[in-house]
Design a protein around this nucleic acid. Structure first.
Length: 568
DNA sequence: GCCGTTTTCGGCCCGACTGTTTTCAGTCG
């Protein structure tokens, strides 16, 4: 699929137009088109062939032409023209906090600076001094910004950010604040977050913030004010804190949770109703008519409250207007973890300890799913050992009261699509999870066919980490997800939402697509240690972002219902 | 450049902060 390639180009076009000072609304059209293409699960190439590009919201005549040209010629005229005017490095300059399109253009035009290193050097040599709008403070801000992006690198994984924020929220509450919540993309459970936002509703902002910046774990303080603070914590993550008056907490929480696109839509709706929304409340003329609670905002706009994980302007506002929002799956609905490794293969925790911890977490059962024989590097179980493990689990089950272990295995799907255990073993197992761990680089058709062949084996219940991507580290393997979803439906095979923090695979847009096609999903932490079991939260968050409900998720079934479902 | 249950033309979200400014541009979320 060329969707992402084209989205990237559209986004870059928008940035170059910003630098050139083009019309803002036109720029916005490119950004919107880029976003829509990124979220699209249909292949644009196919839509182009069927002449359906203009059915995509945000794609009109101009965008459709450009997409068509790219598919045919692998180039877009407008993009090529812009690239001749603006070198790529100039766009990168805008990644520096405090550098926007105007400043990027200024240093490029005046000093021919086209990369971050040259910019840093020029500032230090005082070459920016005297340019319009540049003073000493601005120079310092640019140097600081350069340091931040060099230190900070890219976005952080949700699974890394969540524990940090939980700890901080706890500390702020210990210091006396009552209204405390994470905001931003973290509250929306996006798979990666740029920085961490924490919102506090309290009268005494100065005290909250000075306590906050002095807590342990803070490496550097970037800003301290009465309403805002910003620190870098150990590990290089930036954390922002904002304090608002308690009677504005709801409006501020709504505002700072975003997404930006979602908020823009809400303000448009407000405008049609003669209302105005900002971070202090919702207003009719000069009268504040709500804002203490987040629910106020939605209620006064005449729509249902929308869970944060849905706030991406991907149809949730329309659903809220027509009272068709899904009842999202929640942690309380989860009765089991469907993918757990023990010390029988490459995990480090004993089966019994996993069972005890799972029970403590409120589950009624879990699936022990160690690796199969050919995955030698992970100490995969051979036929003898898997038989022995099945016996062991049966034995432990006899000792457990009110909790059950299921015998499972994460069985390798071999290069030809056959399974790494004979059917006689697969039949004995309660849960068979098919997974690809080798030969990632096969051609798309081969790889897709390989997974489909595995799904056609009636003993295979779940396909693990269907796209194989590792966030920021390894690209997804080249599979035709639409075909996989179709086959999953036909063979009644579940697709996994692998909730290990560096996988989160299926991604939200595909999990949503799978649901639309009647495919069930199985959340598995892929835990290799007792301390990994908490990552179920990440999978449930992802499921929410995919609009999944209780009925879409196998983890919500009781032990007996699950067994029944799997044997039918 | 997109879009339309008031529109095929004329709209397209809002406010704070910062730094550079004598009234505002740029950046950010």
């Amino acid at each position: 699929m060329k969707n992402k390639e084209i989205a990237d180009i559209f986004f870059e076009i928008a940035e170059m137009m910003e630098i050139l000072g083009d019309n803002l609304f036109r720029i916005n059209s490119y950004k919107k088109a880029a976003r829509v293409l990124n979220d699209l699960t249909e292949d644009v190439e196919l839509l182009s062939k069927e002449n359906k590009l203009k059915d995509i919201p945000g794609i009109g005549t101009g965008m459709a032409e450009k997409i068509t040209q790219y598919i045919a010629e692998r180039r877009i005229d407008k993009y090529e023209e812009l690239k001749r005017e603006i070198p790529e490095g100039v766009i990168r300059l805008m990644e520096i906090p405090g550098m926007g399109p105007k400043t990027a253009q200024l240093v490029f035009k005046a000093l021919n600076i086209t990369n971050i290193e040259d910019l840093q050097k020029a500032v230090k040599e005082g070459k920016l001094r005297g340019l319009p709008g540049i003073g000493q403070k601005k120079e310092e801000a640019i140097l600081k910004g350069i340091k931040i992006i060099k230190d900070l690198g890219n976005r952080i994984l949700l699974g890394v950010a969540l524990p940090i924020v939980s700890e901080m929220v706890k500390k702020i509450k210990q210091n006396g604040a009552k209204l405390v919540s994470p905001a931003g993309s973290l509250r929306r459970m996006k798979e990666t977050v740029g920085d961490i936002d924490i919102l506090v509703g309290d009268k005494d902002g100065r005290k909250i913030i000075s306590d906050f910046v002095r807590q342990g774990g803070v490496k550097e303080v970037l800003a301290v004010g009465d309403t805002k603070g910003r620190v870098i914590v150990e590990g290089g993550t930036q954390v922002d804190i904002r304090v608002v008056s308690p009677d504005c907490f709801g409006a501020a929480l709504q505002y700072f949770t975003g997404s930006k696109e979602h908020n823009v839509r809400l303000r448009e709706i407000a405008k049609t109703k003669g209302l105005k929304i900002n971070e202090y409340g919702i207003f009719k003329g000069d009268n504040k008519i709500g804002g203490e609670k987040e629910e106020d905002i939605y209620e006064l706009l005449g729509i249902e409250w929308i869970p944060p994980v849905l706030r991406e302007d991907r149809g949730e506002i329309e659903a809220a207007q027509t009272k068709k929002l899904p009842r999202l799956v929640a942690m309380e609905d989860i009765k089991c973890d469907l993918h757990v490794h023990s010390n029988w293969s490459d995990g480090t925790t004993e089966i019994m300890a996993l069972a005890e911890e799972a029970e403590r977490l409120g589950y009624t059962h879990i699936v022990i799913s160690d690796h199969s024989q050919s995955l030698k590097i992970a100490n995969g179980l051979d036929l003898k050992r898997i038989e022995a493990q099945i016996e062991e689990i049966k034995k432990i089950n006899k000792d457990l009261k009110g909790f059950k272990l299921l015998c499972g295995s994460e069985v390798d799907i071999k290069a030809d699509g056959s399974m790494d255990f004979p059917d006689s073993i697969l039949k004995e197992l309660d849960v068979v999870i098919g997974a690809i761990h080798t030969n990632f680089k096969q051609e798309k058709k081969v790889l897709t066919g390989r997974i489909i062949k595995a799904m056609e084996n009636p003993n295979v219940d779940i396909i693990a980490h269907p796209t194989g991507r590792l966030i920021g580290a390894r690209e997804a393997y080249d599979v035709d997800m639409n075909e996989i979803i179709k086959a999953a439906h036909n063979t009644k095979t579940a697709l996994e939402i692998n909730s290990h923090y560096d996988r989160l695979d299926l991604q939200d847009i595909w999990a949503h697509k799978a649901k639309e096609n009647g495919v069930k999903m199985a959340i598995g932490t892929d835990a290799h240690h007792i301390d990994n079991l908490w990552m179920m939260r990440l999978g449930v968050g992802l499921a929410g972002r995919a609009w999944l409900e209780k009925k879409d998720i196998l983890n919500t079934l009781s032990h007996d219902s699950l067994i029944k479902y799997l044997t039918n």
